[in-house]
């Protein structure tokens, strides 16, 4: 057979493949192209332009938007810092709490589903609702639950604290909410991983006299390692999607010190109508997320090679 007919054959085979695949992938492909991929490319264009949404005028201005975002005010750097802080503070606690609770729930003989549903409740409650409850709890006078407890009941503080109007207490409230909201998700994922560990492994360990901690350390942790990685990557990427809680709890106050990238983007686009700068912020966060994902993948793969899995 000569190369000509071989190529022809391959071409025909490819064509046949596409023809039989098209009915299946076409509806999705059209929607993804029109509403995801094209908008992504358009965002790059807007970020390099002065864009007027009402008239539709779009003028190329180079990197001006990026310069404005990065160097004109400190807002961007506060927001960028806060996204990283959110990840650094909440992700370890979510993983620790999720592991602890899933391990304990998994060891229960009765009533597992009470705790499963109970801890998962914050996950299925919408961000809008939990933000509103936290806004009420962290209220700045004696009607806020926290102020009431700290000042009127336990007399730890002399005066009411305006929690959501200060930089670090405001950020703290956002972190607490993030941990509370996501821990149940981590727990459920870990629980699924734990349930796939063979039961007799634990049984033989207890007969050998291994305590609850030894079993946790040597059996559980090593079995759920890949799942820990999965939860970690998801939560770190999620840390760059923080938005509603900031909008409803602090609105970035005071002076943008509790803001995050997504809130900054929203604010630039839909309050100040600076679509170019908003797109620049979006692209910077996208690049950050991609770099982080690549980096985490590298670290994890290295780890896997070392442990010989």
């Amino acid at each position: 057979m000569n190369s000509m007919s071989l190529r022809k054959k391959r071409f025909h085979k490819g064509l046949r493949g596409w023809l039989s695949a098209l009915p299946f992938i076409l509806p999705g492909l059209i929607l993804v192209t029109v509403f995801i991929i094209y908008p992504m490319l358009f965002t790059i264009r807007i970020s390099l332009s002065d864009y007027r949404i009402v008239t539709g005028d779009i003028t190329y201005i180079g990197l001006t938007n990026f310069k404005n975002v990065l160097f004109e005010t400190k807002e961007f750097w506060y927001a960028y810092r806060n996204n990283f802080l959110y990840a650094i503070v909440t992700v370890p606690l979510i993983i620790f709490g999720g592991l602890l609770f899933s391990y304990l729930v998994n060891n229960l003989k009765h009533g597992q589903s009470i705790f499963k549903v109970g801890f998962y409740l914050p996950v299925i409650t919408s961000w809008v609702i939990v933000s509103l409850v936290f806004k009420y709890m962290f209220g700045n006078s004696n009607t806020g639950m926290l102020n009431y407890l700290l000042v009127d009941v336990f007399h730890i503080l002399d005066d009411y604290v305006p929690w959501l109007y200060r930089e670090w207490t405001g950020n703290g409230a956002i972190w607490v909410m993030g941990i509370w909201k996501n821990m149940g998700w981590a727990m459920l994922i870990f629980l699924a991983a734990l349930q796939s560990i063979p039961k007799d492994l634990y049984e033989s360990a207890s007969i050998d006299g291994a305590g609850i901690w030894a079993k946790f350390r040597y059996i559980t942790i090593s079995a759920v390692k890949p799942t820990i990685y999965f939860v970690m990557v998801n939560m770190i990427i999620g840390s760059f999607n923080v938005f509603i809680q900031v909008m409803l709890l602090t609105s970035g106050n005071p002076n943008g010190t509790t803001s995050v990238l997504q809130y900054l983007l929203y604010n630039r686009a839909f309050s100040k109508f600076e679509f170019g700068e908003a797109s620049a912020i979006g692209l910077i966060s996208a690049v950050t997320i991609i770099l982080l994902t690549v980096l985490l993948n590298k670290i994890f793969l290295l780890d896997e090679k070392e442990s010989g899995v």
Partner: peptide, 17 residues
């Protein structure tokens, strides 16, 4: 790849489309 992008990076062009 699109899954890695922040959710509402695209909202402005989506609005325009």
């Amino acid at each position: 790849f699109t899954l890695m992008m922040p959710g509402f990076l695209n909202i402005i062009p989506q609005f325009i489309v």
